[in-house]
Design a protein around this nucleic acid. Structure first.
Lengths: 238, 238
DNA sequence: TAGATTGTTAATCGATTAACAATC
DNA sequence: TAGATTGTTAATCGATTAACAATC
């Protein structure tokens, strides 16, 4: 039996030649999904997988998988497929997982609490080191083990602790104020739940907007299209 | 001054010829965003807008806007631009907003409560008629004015009330059970927050998966890329 | 009428898929 | 060695942009 080590050695050599030509945005958007599926396979104890098997699981073409993964260098091996553990760790690295980012959640309403309680951050190597809110009843307490501070302390805290990521779950009206404070304090990324596109002059900050409303609307659209189809085919049968 | 009514009359005539050839998926994905911006313009009291002005606000090309809107028929008028109110209402109609869908939220944890409290549903003409949970302490109460029932009643409730949309905020482990119950009860659309792709055999149900984890990961990736750039340029200066 | 701006065609660009030689 | 499966090129497909004639 061919040893996994030998295979691994070969991988390492090839990856050194990683192409640094810019990765298509379409590929980048798909990386988190690969990460998710490979993580599941790893948990299930799988060691290797071919592009064709993965394509069936993920509902994409095998060709696309090979094309995508090759943007970052040769992760696979002819005749063998892909080593799941290795591939997973490489994609994790590419995505910046396990960079050990520190993050704060601004807004301790229902959404802020929901985010304080998920395991989503930990799984991606992100530490939630503080919550911020204006409500005096919760300032000074802990929520899911995360200390809650007053929002007035946000700037100093982020500056001192060199916080990398800020999560914004405050009302729309407060979003810009908080975002500017975060940016001024050197925060590098903002995860914005304020249901609006947050445009900052300061382009040293990356904003990832979550648009739940758009998603809900897309669902409405699809439901409507489906209902219309049903209606039409019912009419046809009459 | 040219009357708005005259303009409107012209619009109506042209829209009757709406092209029913299938709309590209890329366009559909952009519709909620158009809807959002047009709604804002409407609130700001604006009456009309040209593709070129809208393109600046939305950060896309004017050409794309004209191309997109034309998939559904002639919404604009040469030399005038687009009537915002009319365009907004047409896109609303296309998206299935104001179809008056009834919806239930399954899972009354932090996320369920957050969704119970937003104005997101109301704005899209969706009525949240019930919450479901297993916790006996909250069953029988109301949360943000929405009655909470035990999850055992989910099937009968949805079947009787002909619920259109189910929102899934239960833990991953319960997601499939609940989803199948909803589907069996005739629910047409499922908005899934369970951090997993929900595949149902029953293809009469539309599932819209929310992947907050993927979004967080994309943010990590972008932050990492930016940090790498900064590091590189700093090295270059040495 | 003259100016503005759309609707639409044609050109470009990028992303996906198919195919197969390279190679483990 | 033979079989399997990748990496990669070429072909196809779809989406975006540019340009301009149509028309309000």
């Amino acid at each position: 039996m061919e040893s996994i080590d030998k295979v691994h050695g070969t991988f390492e050599r090839r990856v050194m030649e990683t192409k640094d030509t810019d990765v298509p945005t379409a590929v980048i958007k798909r990386l988190p999904r690969y990460h998710r599926y490979l993580g599941d396979l790893l948990e299930a104890g799988r060691l290797r997988i071919s592009s064709s098997e993965l394509s069936k699981i993920m509902n994409v073409t095998a060709s696309q998988i090979r094309q995508d993964l090759n943007c970052f260098g040769g992760f696979g091996q002819q005749g063998y497929g892909y080593n799941i553990k290795y591939l997973f760790s490489k994609i994790s690295e590419l995505l910046g997982v396990a960079e050990g980012y520190d993050c704060v959640i601004v807004g301790a309403g229902n959404l802020g609490r929901a985010l304080a309680s998920t395991r989503m951050f930990g799984r991606r190597g992100i530490n939630r080191i503080a919550l911020f809110d204006v409500n005096p009843e919760i300032v000074g307490t802990e929520i899911y083990g995360i200390p809650v501070y007053h929002i007035d302390e946000l700037y100093d805290f982020c500056k001192h602790k060199r916080v990398n990521i800020g999560v914004l779950t405050v009302p729309k009206s407060a979003a810009y104020d908080v975002a500017r404070t975060l940016a001024a304090a050197g925060v590098k990324g903002i995860w914005n739940f304020a249901n609006m596109e947050l445009k900052l002059d300061d382009d040293s900050v990356i904003v990832e907007n979550i648009h739940l409303g758009d998603s809900l609307m897309t669902l409405c659209y699809k439901v409507k299209v489906k209902n219309d189809q049903i209606k039409k085919s019912a009419e046809g049968e009459e």
